[in-house]
Nucleic acid binder design. Sequence first.
RNA 1: GGCCCCAUCGUCUAGAGGCCUAGGACAUCAGAUUCUCAAUCUGGGUACACGGGUUCGAAUCCCGUUGGGGCCGCCA
Length: 441
Amino acid sequence: MSFRVRFAPSPTGFLHIGSVRTALFNWLYARRTGGTFVLRIEDTDTARNTEQSLHTILDGLRWLGLDWDEGPEKGGPFGPYFQSQRAAIYQRRVKELIDKGLAYEREGAIRFKMTRAPIEVADLIAGRVVRPLNETEMLDPDFVIVRSDGNPVFHFVNVVDDMEMKITHVIRGEDHLSNTPKHIALFRAFGVEPPQYAHIPMILNPDGTKMSKSDPDVAKARLASLQTYVEDGYVPEAVRNYLCLLGWSPKDNREVMPLEEIVKLFDLPQILRNNARFDSTKLLWMNGEYIRALPLDRFLTLARPFTGGRDDPKVLGLVKEKVKLLKELPDWIGYFFTDDYPFDPEAVKKSCGSPHTSERLLKLADKFSAIAAWDAAGLEAVLKALATEMAIKTGELIHPCRVAVSGKSAGPSLYHMLEVLGRDRVLARLRRGAEKFRSVV
RNA sequence: GGCCCCAUCGUCUAGAGGCCUAGGACAUCAGAUUCUCAAUCUGGGUACACGGGUUCGAAUCCCGUUGGGGCCGCCA
């Protein structure tokens, strides 16, 4: 049997983080089974359908490394993969139902004669779910499949496409579970065996509410959009790994793990049935883990959009260990590229308030100026020797030195930082600091 | 309102009747280490929603309650 799954987003201008996980689970299942991952664009709502919206989807999937086997820019044997280009297929299928006496016109719209009996969904995740018609539906069970303006609606085109594209497993959000009987009824009307269904639970806001891209609370709305994570400087590997862990687990206490490993273990029945809340704190932690483990080349590539052209590999290599979010990069690297960096008042107060600060910085500058080979090991030796000579703790030199050359109390390993900064700049900044801090006391 | 799904630390989860005085991770607290911050290491606190069953025995099975989520559109 050949497995065929699909991700069928609607181009709305955003890629919802929940949709992203749905895409990811579909992709994982396809890769795990050696099947086919189809990307289909549900652009029947022409008002929202723009070129830009399409690229949001394609770029988002690419960013995460979720490659599709059939779909836009790729083609395939079951195209076109845009619903807006499949009108003829839908018309043919509508006619088929009318001819069979299973659909009829009323008030200009075409309605499907829905089964009155309860329909059972054999869901791979939720189990057997029987959903009888409810109060409202009982009044009028039939539903519209083609609007009076001639455009077919979601339930219809979704089923027709899954059928035509020979989708074997529909993996989608749990919000579709209640609609599934409609879809099964449609498949049966066409005399076609429905696909297997797997409804994955939802991802909720930290407070348990539904994640929405149009939430009036801006912070929540940001949380819901993939774009946020791209802009804030999360690395795709981390976002992907984190998302895998929402509703799925390798069950052996591993969390940070390579995709290939997840592909090997992933399966549908073991997906949790309960909703998960999005925990951005844990994502942030995982992002830091990934960044520190990143090979320098990869880090440089990912960092490029955030550095403002300041792509010195030595500098970036130095701060790689410190960064948790790529967008923090400008703060970490600023003083490597200008002498006009800001001084953190707190740091100055704390580390440079001693009446001896200026004298010590000048002494340090003198010692450093005599160094033959300007490297971290040599700098460390000289600084420590000076501390001993002056009978003070190394920290009493280290801290003022760090503030003088960077303006900050936090940063990479001091000696490596001095090495990268270079002799001229270090000496100048030390002497400038000696002047500057004289008045602090 | 009707119907459907769900319920283990604050959060993500392990647990498929005895291995559980419930394990891991993030967060948090305390300590160690370090040139700062971070990282790292050690240790602590924190959970089976509630009530009934079934069983020799239940976090695990059943029922109910409560709570959360979803769907009931000529949106997708």
